[in-house]
Amino acid sequence: MAFRYMVLKNGWLIFNYGTGIANFRASTGRPGISDPSIENMGPIPPGWYIIYPSEIEEGSVNFLEKKDDVVDYMTTYSHYVLRNIRGDWGYYRVKLHPQKLMYPNRDGHRSEFYLHGGKTIGSSGCIDVGREDIALFNLIKSTSTYDGTDNILVEVTEYPNGNGWNKLSATSPVEELEQWWNSF
């Protein structure tokens, strides 16, 4: 298996999987926040992280398919609603394990970052690929051997978000963010 790695730079997550390269629009943190030391708002600290494909979690819930058992249906539906109130996880997510941070003394206190998708733009510091999570995670799965040797290195650069991200307001209307996101 070829060495696989990703680079988050200027609003793009570039995935090199040995036989090809795929690009996915991505962001990290809240719009207008550029300091990685700000808890639950700043971007993921620059550095190197590892993804273990065996840890990929599927978060998709199609509560319309759970009609057989009413209790099962209500439990599934409530998990779906709560997940979207507490955060926008998308269909898939995987934990990013820090290996080496560029500024460990300043950013080292933050942890529990994920690579995930979602309906809305921005995150609490995770890498968010928006609605492209299905395509990205299908590519990760299809290039994995799941034998413990197929871990993926993720490099987060000093400029992980696209141009103009830092000029947006953290309280911008969703429409403004969607227009900015789709302008690329």
Score class of each variant (00 low, 15 high):
5 Y>F: 14
11 G>P: 06
11 G>N: 04
18 G>L: 05
23 N>M: 10
27 S>T: 15
29 G>T: 01
30 R>F: 04
34 S>E: 10
35 D>R: 02
35 D>W: 05
37 S>N: 11
40 N>F: 06
42 G>E: 06
44 I>W: 01
46 P>R: 08
48 W>I: 15
55 E>I: 00
65 E>T: 09
66 K>M: 07
69 D>T: 03
71 V>A: 09
73 Y>I: 04
75 T>H: 07
77 Y>D: 02
79 H>N: 14
84 N>F: 02
84 N>H: 12
89 W>M: 10
91 Y>T: 11
91 Y>W: 08
92 Y>I: 06
93 R>T: 02
96 L>Y: 08
98 P>M: 00
99 Q>P: 00
99 Q>A: 12
101 L>P: 10
103 Y>R: 15
109 H>E: 11
110 R>K: 13
113 F>P: 05
114 Y>T: 03
114 Y>R: 14
114 Y>E: 06
120 T>E: 13
124 S>C: 03
125 G>A: 02
126 C>L: 00
129 V>S: 13
135 A>H: 07
136 L>F: 04
137 F>S: 14
138 N>Y: 13
139 L>V: 05
139 L>G: 10
141 K>L: 07
142 S>P: 03
145 T>V: 11
145 T>A: 11
148 G>M: 03
149 T>E: 07
151 N>D: 08
155 E>V: 07
158 E>C: 08
161 N>I: 13
163 N>W: 06
163 N>R: 10
166 N>K: 11
167 K>E: 15
173 P>I: 06
176 E>M: 15
178 E>N: 10
181 W>T: 07
182 N>M: 12
